[in-house]
Amino acid sequence: MDTYKLLLAEDDELLASLLKFRLQKEGFQVNISSNGKEVKEHLEKEVPDLIISDIMMPYFSGLELVDYVRNELNSKIPIIIISSAGNEENVLKAFDLGANDFISKPVSPAELIMRINRELRKV
């Protein structure tokens, strides 16, 4: 069985490390990008099965990432947005741009895994 490749775009190293550990333990192959530039470079090299992205990142916000993936890469890979700014405007904008799901911080790793699996099942 092939493992799913996840791209975790999170500038908080501790949280990224924690989530990576948990996701890897769940069987996913996780790549971490700490800013928008790295995400873009990673996407040019390799398209993951699912993207988990924070909204507030250096160089390239999570919403811009969604727009980039949907409109420039014309990719339909699932994107789950994580943000501590879980206000209505951000949520609506994320979904409007094409995000598949939205999780507010603090994040429950168990919940995140459930949502990832759900999105991957759709694919």
């Binding site: 924690l18 948990r22 919940e111």
Partner: peptide
Amino acid sequence: STLMELRRDVSGQAL
């Protein structure tokens, strides 16, 4: 300090 930082970002059983 690391645990304090993580406390802000995680919830549920992890917390």
